[in-house]
Design a binder for these strands. Structure first.
Length: 151
DNA sequence: GCCAACGTTGGC
DNA sequence: GCCAACGTTGGC
């Protein structure tokens, strides 16, 4: 089983919306590295840290589970969507996304600043390539963060 | 709102 | 295939 970190801006899609909906399609990803993780590497049952980016403060706010393998992202064919991609063809879709299931909202989040203070987390992708919106997390890192939270 | 870091596009 | 120009992400 693998672990992941997935970012969302709370203004666009927050942990509270995720909690209310229980499930969501992780659409709108337009970065090949992030897409490839969803298409090729994620397995149903993998867990992920739900991260609020562009938030005050940014940080890890909850947990989700991969619920279904990647399917073509419907928003790429939707002309009204801001994620519409004119270069993507129906018979050869460019963008794929997984379905996620809500698992938990933490009572207390862990802020980015708190993560930066942890020596054990210094190699986390989050702290070294801050732009990647979907990233792998090692089991050690994942458990370390849950420990910080007392979860 | 600024800007550093990085990804993508497109001319050559 | 290089690289300049441009767009986006995301912390501050």
């Amino acid at each position: 089983m693998a672990y992941w970190l997935m970012k969302s801006e709370p203004d666009a899609y927050s942990i509270d919306q995720f909690k209310a909906e229980k499930k969501c399609l992780w659409d709108g990803i337009r970065n090949y590295q992030a897409r490839n993780f969803m298409m090729k590497d994620m397995k149903v049952g993998d867990e992920f840290l739900f991260y609020h980016s562009n938030a005050k403060p940014p940080g890890v706010v909850g947990l989700g589970v991969i619920n279904k393998p990647a399917v073509p992202d419907p928003s790429q064919f939707d002309k009204k969507s801001k994620y519409f991609d004119a270069k993507s063809q129906k018979d050869n879709p460019r963008w794929h996304c997984i379905e996620a299931k809500f698992k938990k909202k933490f009572k207390n989040m862990v802020s980015l600043n708190e993560l930066k203070e942890e020596k054990a987390l210094k190699d986390m992708v989050l702290l070294n390539n801050s732009r990647l919106s979907i990233q792998p997390v090692t089991e050690k890192e994942f458990k370390h963060i849950l420990n910080l939270l007392g979860e």
